[in-house]
Design a protein around this nucleic acid. Structure first.
Lengths: 143, 143
DNA sequence: CATATTAACGCAATAATATTGCATTTGCAA
DNA sequence: TTGCAAATGCAATATTATTGCGTTAATATG
Protein backbone atom coordinates (compact mmCIF):
# COMPACT_ATOMS: atom_id res chain seq x y z
CA UNK A 1 0.00 0.00 0.00
CA UNK A 2 1.71 3.20 -1.16
CA UNK A 3 -0.64 5.47 0.72
CA UNK A 4 -2.08 4.84 4.15
CA UNK A 5 -5.81 4.67 4.49
CA UNK A 6 -5.73 7.93 6.35
CA UNK A 7 -3.94 9.65 3.48
CA UNK A 8 -6.42 8.22 1.02
CA UNK A 9 -9.30 9.49 3.11
CA UNK A 10 -7.72 12.93 3.31
CA UNK A 11 -7.32 12.94 -0.47
CA UNK A 12 -10.95 11.97 -0.89
CA UNK A 13 -12.10 14.88 1.23
CA UNK A 14 -9.86 17.40 -0.50
CA UNK A 15 -10.94 16.13 -3.92
CA UNK A 16 -14.48 17.19 -3.06
CA UNK A 17 -13.59 20.53 -1.54
CA UNK A 18 -14.36 19.31 1.96
CA UNK A 19 -12.17 20.31 4.85
CA UNK A 20 -10.09 17.57 6.39
CA UNK A 21 -10.99 17.37 10.05
CA UNK A 22 -10.23 14.80 12.75
CA UNK A 23 -13.94 14.02 13.07
CA UNK A 24 -14.35 13.22 9.40
CA UNK A 25 -11.22 11.11 9.31
CA UNK A 26 -12.44 9.22 12.35
CA UNK A 27 -15.79 8.64 10.64
CA UNK A 28 -14.15 7.36 7.46
CA UNK A 29 -11.82 5.18 9.50
CA UNK A 30 -14.74 3.51 11.28
CA UNK A 31 -16.62 2.89 8.04
CA UNK A 32 -13.45 1.51 6.45
CA UNK A 33 -12.77 -0.85 9.34
CA UNK A 34 -16.28 -2.24 9.82
CA UNK A 35 -17.23 -3.24 6.32
CA UNK A 36 -20.99 -3.15 6.54
CA UNK A 37 -23.68 -0.49 6.69
CA UNK A 38 -23.74 1.21 10.10
CA UNK A 39 -26.40 3.36 11.73
CA UNK A 40 -25.50 6.75 13.20
CA UNK A 41 -25.87 5.14 16.61
CA UNK A 42 -23.46 2.31 15.81
CA UNK A 43 -20.94 4.73 14.39
CA UNK A 44 -20.95 6.77 17.58
CA UNK A 45 -20.50 3.63 19.68
CA UNK A 46 -17.30 2.96 17.78
CA UNK A 47 -16.01 6.50 18.23
CA UNK A 48 -12.66 6.47 19.96
CA UNK A 49 -12.16 8.58 23.08
CA UNK A 50 -13.50 12.09 22.50
CA UNK A 51 -17.22 12.54 22.36
CA UNK A 52 -18.81 13.84 19.22
CA UNK A 53 -22.21 15.40 18.96
CA UNK A 54 -24.80 13.52 16.92
CA UNK A 55 -25.42 16.71 14.99
CA UNK A 56 -21.85 16.79 13.82
CA UNK A 57 -22.06 13.17 12.77
CA UNK A 58 -25.29 13.69 10.84
CA UNK A 59 -23.84 16.73 9.11
CA UNK A 60 -20.66 14.89 8.23
CA UNK A 61 -22.68 11.98 6.86
CA UNK A 62 -24.78 14.37 4.82
CA UNK A 63 -21.70 16.08 3.35
CA UNK A 64 -19.95 12.80 2.55
CA UNK A 65 -23.09 11.32 1.07
CA UNK A 66 -23.54 14.37 -1.16
CA UNK A 67 -19.93 13.90 -2.30
CA UNK A 68 -20.60 10.20 -3.03
CA UNK A 69 -17.88 9.18 -0.60
CA UNK A 70 -20.51 7.55 1.57
CA UNK A 71 -23.67 5.77 0.52
CA UNK A 72 -26.88 5.82 2.51
CA UNK A 73 -28.85 2.59 2.48
CA UNK A 74 -32.19 1.60 3.88
CA UNK A 75 -32.49 -1.90 5.21
CA UNK A 76 -35.96 -1.72 6.75
CA UNK A 77 -34.52 -1.06 10.17
CA UNK A 78 -36.43 2.13 10.80
CA UNK A 79 -33.28 4.17 10.37
CA UNK A 80 -30.66 4.87 7.73
CA UNK A 81 -27.38 2.99 7.51
CA UNK A 82 -24.19 4.28 5.96
CA UNK A 83 -21.32 2.57 4.19
CA UNK A 84 -18.24 3.65 2.28
CA UNK A 85 -18.60 3.85 -1.47
CA UNK A 86 -16.04 1.59 -3.11
CA UNK A 87 -15.86 2.60 -6.78
CA UNK A 88 -16.11 -0.37 -9.10
CA UNK A 89 -17.25 -2.62 -6.29
CA UNK A 90 -20.92 -1.77 -6.27
CA UNK A 91 -22.77 -4.29 -4.12
CA UNK A 92 -26.02 -5.02 -2.32
CA UNK A 93 -27.15 -6.68 0.91
CA UNK A 94 -28.79 -9.67 2.44
CA UNK A 95 -30.45 -8.84 5.76
CA UNK A 96 -31.66 -11.21 8.48
CA UNK A 97 -35.11 -10.07 9.57
CA UNK A 98 -34.57 -11.75 12.94
CA UNK A 99 -31.24 -10.43 14.18
CA UNK A 100 -30.33 -7.75 11.64
CA UNK A 101 -27.15 -9.47 10.46
CA UNK A 102 -26.00 -8.14 7.12
CA UNK A 103 -24.11 -9.99 4.40
CA UNK A 104 -22.72 -8.16 1.41
CA UNK A 105 -23.66 -9.52 -1.99
CA UNK A 106 -20.96 -9.30 -4.59
CA UNK A 107 -21.83 -8.25 -8.07
CA UNK A 108 -24.96 -6.50 -9.18
CA UNK A 109 -27.54 -7.46 -11.76
CA UNK A 110 -28.90 -3.96 -11.68
CA UNK A 111 -26.98 -1.86 -14.14
CA UNK A 112 -28.44 -3.47 -17.22
CA UNK A 113 -31.82 -3.51 -15.54
CA UNK A 114 -31.67 0.25 -15.00
CA UNK A 115 -31.65 0.87 -18.74
CA UNK A 116 -34.47 -1.55 -19.32
CA UNK A 117 -36.57 0.03 -16.56
CA UNK A 118 -35.99 3.51 -17.94
CA UNK A 119 -37.10 2.41 -21.42
CA UNK A 120 -40.37 1.08 -20.02
CA UNK A 121 -40.99 4.12 -17.85
CA UNK A 122 -43.52 6.67 -19.04
CA UNK A 123 -42.68 9.55 -16.74
CA UNK A 124 -38.95 9.45 -15.99
CA UNK A 125 -36.05 10.93 -17.91
CA UNK A 126 -33.14 9.45 -16.00
CA UNK A 127 -32.17 6.86 -13.42
CA UNK A 128 -29.12 7.46 -11.29
CA UNK A 129 -29.27 4.83 -8.59
CA UNK A 130 -31.02 1.75 -7.38
CA UNK A 131 -31.31 -0.23 -4.19
CA UNK A 132 -31.55 -3.98 -4.34
CA UNK A 133 -31.78 -5.63 -0.95
CA UNK A 134 -32.75 -9.12 0.12
CA UNK A 135 -34.43 -10.15 3.36
CA UNK A 136 -34.41 -13.58 4.90
CA UNK A 137 -33.14 -15.62 7.81
CA UNK A 138 -29.51 -16.36 8.60
CA UNK A 139 -28.37 -19.85 9.56
CA UNK A 140 -27.85 -18.85 13.21
CA UNK A 141 -31.43 -17.61 13.58
CA UNK A 142 -32.87 -20.53 11.62
CA UNK A 143 -31.32 -22.97 14.09
CA UNK B 1 -67.17 -7.45 -10.38
CA UNK B 2 -69.14 -10.02 -8.37
CA UNK B 3 -67.98 -8.71 -5.03
CA UNK B 4 -67.56 -5.09 -4.09
CA UNK B 5 -64.12 -3.95 -3.02
CA UNK B 6 -65.44 -3.54 0.48
CA UNK B 7 -66.60 -7.15 0.59
CA UNK B 8 -63.26 -8.31 -0.73
CA UNK B 9 -61.47 -6.32 1.93
CA UNK B 10 -63.71 -7.78 4.61
CA UNK B 11 -62.96 -11.28 3.32
CA UNK B 12 -59.25 -10.54 3.41
CA UNK B 13 -59.44 -9.50 7.04
CA UNK B 14 -61.53 -12.49 8.09
CA UNK B 15 -59.24 -14.88 6.22
CA UNK B 16 -56.44 -13.78 8.51
CA UNK B 17 -58.40 -13.87 11.74
CA UNK B 18 -58.50 -10.09 11.95
CA UNK B 19 -61.60 -8.29 13.09
CA UNK B 20 -63.40 -6.28 10.47
CA UNK B 21 -63.63 -2.71 11.69
CA UNK B 22 -64.60 0.53 9.97
CA UNK B 23 -61.08 1.88 10.51
CA UNK B 24 -59.43 -1.03 8.76
CA UNK B 25 -61.89 -0.94 5.89
CA UNK B 26 -61.24 2.76 5.51
CA UNK B 27 -57.50 2.11 5.47
CA UNK B 28 -57.82 -0.60 2.82
CA UNK B 29 -60.14 1.61 0.81
CA UNK B 30 -57.60 4.44 0.74
CA UNK B 31 -54.75 2.13 -0.26
CA UNK B 32 -56.93 0.58 -2.98
CA UNK B 33 -57.92 3.95 -4.38
CA UNK B 34 -54.51 5.63 -4.42
CA UNK B 35 -52.40 3.05 -6.13
CA UNK B 36 -48.96 3.97 -4.85
CA UNK B 37 -47.05 3.66 -1.59
CA UNK B 38 -48.37 6.07 1.04
CA UNK B 39 -46.85 7.25 4.29
CA UNK B 40 -48.82 7.10 7.53
CA UNK B 41 -49.17 10.87 7.26
CA UNK B 42 -50.56 10.74 3.73
CA UNK B 43 -53.01 8.03 4.68
CA UNK B 44 -54.37 10.13 7.54
CA UNK B 45 -54.76 13.13 5.24
CA UNK B 46 -57.04 11.03 3.06
CA UNK B 47 -59.11 9.82 5.98
CA UNK B 48 -62.75 10.70 5.49
CA UNK B 49 -64.56 12.63 8.21
CA UNK B 50 -63.89 11.04 11.59
CA UNK B 51 -60.49 11.51 13.12
CA UNK B 52 -58.34 8.48 13.77
CA UNK B 53 -55.45 8.31 16.15
CA UNK B 54 -52.03 7.73 14.58
CA UNK B 55 -51.51 4.88 17.02
CA UNK B 56 -54.53 3.07 15.64
CA UNK B 57 -53.24 3.56 12.13
CA UNK B 58 -49.77 2.28 12.95
CA UNK B 59 -51.25 -0.74 14.72
CA UNK B 60 -53.57 -1.47 11.81
CA UNK B 61 -50.66 -1.18 9.37
CA UNK B 62 -48.61 -3.52 11.53
CA UNK B 63 -51.39 -6.11 11.67
CA UNK B 64 -52.10 -5.93 7.95
CA UNK B 65 -48.41 -6.07 7.11
CA UNK B 66 -47.97 -9.16 9.28
CA UNK B 67 -50.90 -10.73 7.41
CA UNK B 68 -49.28 -9.84 4.07
CA UNK B 69 -52.32 -7.79 3.09
CA UNK B 70 -50.18 -4.70 3.07
CA UNK B 71 -46.54 -4.30 2.11
CA UNK B 72 -44.17 -1.88 3.75
CA UNK B 73 -41.64 -0.26 1.45
CA UNK B 74 -38.76 2.07 2.02
CA UNK B 75 -38.15 4.67 -0.64
CA UNK B 76 -35.43 6.71 1.05
CA UNK B 77 -37.93 9.22 2.29
CA UNK B 78 -37.01 8.99 5.93
CA UNK B 79 -40.23 7.15 6.69
CA UNK B 80 -42.00 3.96 5.70
CA UNK B 81 -44.59 3.80 2.92
CA UNK B 82 -47.37 1.27 2.63
CA UNK B 83 -49.16 -0.27 -0.32
CA UNK B 84 -51.70 -3.02 -0.90
CA UNK B 85 -50.29 -6.41 -1.76
CA UNK B 86 -51.69 -7.54 -5.09
CA UNK B 87 -50.99 -11.26 -5.38
CA UNK B 88 -49.40 -12.21 -8.68
CA UNK B 89 -48.69 -8.58 -9.47
CA UNK B 90 -45.47 -8.15 -7.58
CA UNK B 91 -43.85 -4.88 -8.60
CA UNK B 92 -41.22 -2.30 -7.71
CA UNK B 93 -40.79 1.47 -7.89
CA UNK B 94 -39.11 4.32 -9.63
CA UNK B 95 -38.73 7.35 -7.36
CA UNK B 96 -37.95 10.94 -8.32
CA UNK B 97 -35.31 12.22 -5.91
CA UNK B 98 -36.50 15.76 -6.56
CA UNK B 99 -40.23 15.72 -6.02
CA UNK B 100 -40.87 12.24 -4.63
CA UNK B 101 -43.10 11.14 -7.50
CA UNK B 102 -43.43 7.38 -7.66
CA UNK B 103 -43.98 5.23 -10.75
CA UNK B 104 -44.76 1.56 -10.41
CA UNK B 105 -42.56 -0.79 -12.41
CA UNK B 106 -44.35 -3.79 -13.84
CA UNK B 107 -42.71 -7.17 -13.64
CA UNK B 108 -39.83 -8.15 -11.45
CA UNK B 109 -36.45 -9.54 -12.35
CA UNK B 110 -35.93 -10.52 -8.76
CA UNK B 111 -37.42 -13.96 -8.21
CA UNK B 112 -34.77 -15.82 -10.14
CA UNK B 113 -32.12 -13.60 -8.64
CA UNK B 114 -33.25 -14.55 -5.11
CA UNK B 115 -32.25 -18.15 -5.70
CA UNK B 116 -28.94 -17.18 -7.19
CA UNK B 117 -28.14 -14.85 -4.29
CA UNK B 118 -29.00 -17.52 -1.74
CA UNK B 119 -26.68 -20.00 -3.45
CA UNK B 120 -23.79 -17.57 -3.25
CA UNK B 121 -24.50 -16.61 0.36
CA UNK B 122 -22.34 -18.12 3.07
CA UNK B 123 -24.42 -17.31 6.10
CA UNK B 124 -28.08 -17.36 5.11
CA UNK B 125 -30.51 -20.26 4.99
CA UNK B 126 -33.48 -18.60 3.34
CA UNK B 127 -34.63 -15.49 1.49
CA UNK B 128 -38.24 -14.45 1.75
CA UNK B 129 -38.35 -11.00 0.25
CA UNK B 130 -36.47 -8.38 -1.63
CA UNK B 131 -36.73 -4.70 -2.36
CA UNK B 132 -35.70 -3.36 -5.71
CA UNK B 133 -36.15 0.35 -6.09
CA UNK B 134 -34.85 2.84 -8.64
CA UNK B 135 -34.03 6.49 -8.07
CA UNK B 136 -33.80 9.16 -10.72
CA UNK B 137 -35.44 12.29 -12.06
CA UNK B 138 -38.88 12.52 -13.59
CA UNK B 139 -39.51 14.46 -16.80
CA UNK B 140 -41.31 17.24 -14.95
CA UNK B 141 -38.35 17.89 -12.64
CA UNK B 142 -35.81 17.51 -15.44
CA UNK B 143 -37.52 20.30 -17.35
C1' DC C 1 -81.12 -12.11 20.91
C1' DA C 2 -78.15 -11.66 25.07
C1' DT C 3 -73.79 -11.68 26.67
C1' DA C 4 -68.90 -12.90 27.40
C1' DT C 5 -64.43 -12.77 25.43
C1' DT C 6 -60.88 -10.71 23.31
C1' DA C 7 -59.32 -7.75 19.74
C1' DA C 8 -59.29 -3.02 18.51
C1' DC C 9 -59.16 1.68 19.82
C1' DG C 10 -58.04 6.35 22.03
C1' DC C 11 -55.35 9.04 24.96
C1' DA C 12 -51.19 10.24 27.19
C1' DA C 13 -46.60 9.61 27.57
C1' DT C 14 -42.29 8.53 25.63
C1' DA C 15 -38.69 6.59 22.51
C1' DA C 16 -35.86 6.87 18.53
C1' DT C 17 -34.23 9.24 14.71
C1' DA C 18 -33.11 13.45 12.57
C1' DT C 19 -32.89 18.60 11.82
C1' DT C 20 -32.39 23.79 12.68
C1' DG C 21 -30.50 28.11 14.64
C1' DC C 22 -26.90 30.29 16.46
C1' DA C 23 -22.58 31.14 18.82
C1' DT C 24 -17.83 29.39 18.79
C1' DT C 25 -13.89 27.08 16.96
C1' DT C 26 -10.83 25.51 13.44
C1' DG C 27 -8.91 24.35 8.80
C1' DC C 28 -6.55 26.43 5.37
C1' DA C 29 -5.75 29.94 1.74
C1' DA C 30 -3.86 34.36 0.96
C1' DT D 1 -0.18 35.32 10.60
C1' DT D 2 -4.29 36.52 9.84
C1' DG D 3 -9.05 36.44 7.89
C1' DC D 4 -12.82 33.92 6.26
C1' DA D 5 -15.66 30.26 5.35
C1' DA D 6 -16.49 25.77 6.85
C1' DA D 7 -17.05 22.77 10.66
C1' DT D 8 -18.48 21.97 15.33
C1' DG D 9 -21.20 22.00 19.82
C1' DC D 10 -25.12 23.03 22.40
C1' DA D 11 -29.92 23.73 22.95
C1' DA D 12 -34.15 23.38 21.13
C1' DT D 13 -37.33 21.15 18.22
C1' DA D 14 -39.32 18.28 14.43
C1' DT D 15 -40.69 13.88 12.72
C1' DT D 16 -41.68 9.18 12.92
C1' DA D 17 -42.99 5.43 15.65
C1' DT D 18 -44.02 2.75 20.00
C1' DT D 19 -45.81 1.43 24.78
C1' DG D 20 -49.07 1.19 28.68
C1' DC D 21 -53.47 1.20 30.10
C1' DG D 22 -58.33 1.93 30.51
C1' DT D 23 -62.42 1.80 27.40
C1' DT D 24 -65.12 0.35 23.40
C1' DA D 25 -66.72 -2.70 20.01
C1' DA D 26 -66.62 -7.05 16.99
C1' DT D 27 -67.93 -11.57 16.94
C1' DA D 28 -68.46 -16.29 18.81
C1' DT D 29 -71.37 -18.85 21.75
C1' DG D 30 -75.37 -20.16 24.28
Amino acid sequence: MRKSKKEKHADLLRAHGLKMTPKRLQLLSILARIKRPLSAHEILKNWSQDGTDVVTLYRALEALTAASIVRRVNLQHGHADYELVTPGKHHHHLVCTDCGTIENIKGCPGDRTEKSVLRKSTRFSSIREHSFEFFGTCRACAA
